[in-house]
Design a protein around this nucleic acid. Structure first.
Lengths: 208, 208
DNA sequence: GTCTATATGCCGATAGAC
DNA sequence: GTCTATCGGCATATAGAC
């Protein structure tokens, strides 16, 4: 049937997501993706000009939803920065406890194609991580934190580092360790860069 | 020739190291490894019972040398913890600037086989990372730092997180960001857990 | 737009000679 | 211990019918 091409494409990306994330991109052939989507390989190649094209669509489809999941739990009507950061790492731990959790799809894609410069997987991974770091920066700036870019970058490092350690050791407690580190950095950052409280007579703080 | 079997095996592991690290494990066939080692595929299968066996040997051969490279730069006759930590991240940046640098072989191996439980690559990666974290803990304990295990874990998270970000963005400045974060955590840890100096009446912590 | 059928080559692994 | 030769299977991708 010639109708509903968009739906067929959607099912292909959905099947690719399930298989690529579950078993790895290189470990899954296009045959398996087509079979899981209920179409033939030829149809897959009608919608995507190559496997690389399908990989790009797979990561692109994950970009905003992945970010949105963290935005959804972190953002509150008036949640202070510390609480939002805490929620992010708590959500990570919740995700990692799921039986089907296999780490970060973007990090894994970048690792699989670490030897190929400008591979679509590398580009998709970089875009997502930049977006995520940018969101962290906006979050911190929204709380009036100075030099939010530097702190956002450090929290981004903690985020991916924790996900990687959890994947390697199958130990979700790395999420708590990273969350605690992020809060420590936030606190230290405030003391050093932007004391919230009015300076007292004695303490070290510099004046406003 | 039947002689020098150990040398043949060494050349095979060396070739595997170069190819697996450069292009990825799954992206490289055993044919290519055998060719690079100057032997036939049949000889490879005389020395290793499977590709998985070769993968295990590849990671095992990297374990101690990788750790040793960081130990070599960090350890000094009387280097304080802060300086050792700083040297570790400086070394990371130096490594990452090399043209052939492709991230952490252990993280990448774990990512490539994230869908396979108990794969030799997963086991090798976990062992190395546990050893690395243990070394960090010993380093901190040697400096009399309390609760060194928790801080070592946080620095381990920063370490792998930074390597991953550098790989994704091709931006070595993440090493500096992670190093600065590690020093902040070390400082905060000392203040909170084990003030070295007797508490003073007034606010500020340190003096000369 | 989706199908059946196929092209072409590399994959990991092995048989058997020497 | 190393070789030549090859197995069976699966990889990505395509030709041509409908």
């Amino acid at each position: 049937m010639a109708r509903n091409s968009a739906e067929t494409r959607r099912r292909l990306v959905e099947a690719a997501d399930k298989l690529f994330y579950g078993h790895g991109i290189q470990a899954v052939g296009v045959d398996a993706v087509a079979l899981a989507a209920g179409v033939t390989k030829r149809t897959l190649y009608y919608h995507f000009k190559s496997k690389d094209d399908l990989i790009a669509a797979y990561l692109d489809a994950r970009d905003l939803p992945t970010l949105g999941r963290y935005q959804g739990v972190a953002d509150g009507p008036a949640a202070p920065a510390a609480q939002q950061i805490e929620r992010i790492f708590t959500q990570m731990e919740t995700n990692a406890r799921n039986r089907d959790w296999r780490g970060c799809s973007f990090v894994r894609a970048a690792c699989e194609f670490a030897g190929v410069t400008n591979h679509p997987a590398r580009i998709g991974a970089a875009r997502h991580k930049k977006r995520f770091e940018g969101w962290l920066q906006d979050l911190l700036e929204g709380e009036g934190i100075k030099d939010a870019a530097a702190l956002a970058r450090q929290i981004m490092i903690l985020f991916d580092g924790a996900v990687t350690q959890i994947l390697i050791h199958r130990d979700t407690s790395y999420a708590q360790a990273a969350g605690a580190a992020a809060l420590t950095l936030l606190q230290a950052h405030r003391v050093e860069k932007a004391p919230v409280r009015p300076p007292q007579r004695k303490g070290g703080a510099r004046k406003a």
